[in-house]
Amino acid sequence: MTNEEIFEKKIQDEVRIEPKDWMPEAYRKTLIRQISQHAHSEVVGMLPEANWITRAPTLRRKATLLAKVQDEAGHGLYLYSAMETLGMPRSQAIDDLLSGKAKYSSIFNYPTLSWADMGTIGWLVDGAAILNQVPLCRTSYGPYARAMVRVCKEESFHQRQGFEIMQSLCEGSADQKAMAQDAINRWWWPTLMMFGPRDAESGNTELSMKWRIKRFTNDELRQKFVDMMVPQAQFLGLTIPDEKLKWNADKNGYDFGDVDWDEFWKVVKGQGPCNKQRLEARNKAHDQGAWVREAAAAYAEKRAKREKIGASA
């Protein structure tokens, strides 16, 4: 059998591909792109939430939000680690993020205007992320699948804490409930965009499905998300801002309106409300951390020297 045939057979037989196995260059490239974008999304995703850490309404909420943001940093690290097994250096991926060359999830280019946005992000955005991520636990590339298992274990707390915030607001004063409704009004459509372009316009989907990197198409996941979220919104007493939303008994799911794809592509291409701000914040953090990296390197070098002298004495 040729390398290609061995690879295809492994995919067919649900045998995971591991870092040193032969793989087609396009498979490697697709994975590097997808995993690095995923990692960048976790990292940039910390920014809209970090914005509210100092203003959380109680100590409990603050501790929770801190833990969640720290988890997202961890998710970024698991994913960079998986990406590196494909031969892409981490420093290069980070340079691509900082220079604006790399992409990350468009959702994080929207602003977090009120405390209810913390609830909505946890509930809706992490909810959407979970739907995307659960099938990735069975993705064909071993290190990516293992990283996703770790991520998924941690995500469910993220969604629950968000739902809890929403529930408190919805059971609170009229103003608090209005704040919750305003948040879902702003976040609903950008969240639906998280699943990516329509299947017909998603150039990568077909190969990704063939190679079992993806298990569901963008539109399938979007439908699942809507079906999952409508009852939860009803429980909270919130209205989903979509006039076309309607139960369809024939397909046993909801019909829903179309995403504003012009807006989606605009945000993807860098013209969202916060693209510039997010990149500036990442660059600033990276630059301000330079002295720490330099000091750690200098210290490691000094210690290594001292150990050498100690060993030869």
Binding site: A67, G74, L77, S81, A297, A304
Partner: peptide, 24 residues
């Protein structure tokens, strides 16, 4: 084996491993 990380030396690797892989 749980994954990898970057660190300047062994001690930093150990502390990063604690923070990245054992938060719970």
């Amino acid at each position: 084996h749980v994954g990898s990380l970057h660190a300047a030396d062994a001690r930093m690797a150990m502390e990063n491993a604690r923070d990245v892989y054992t938060r719970r």
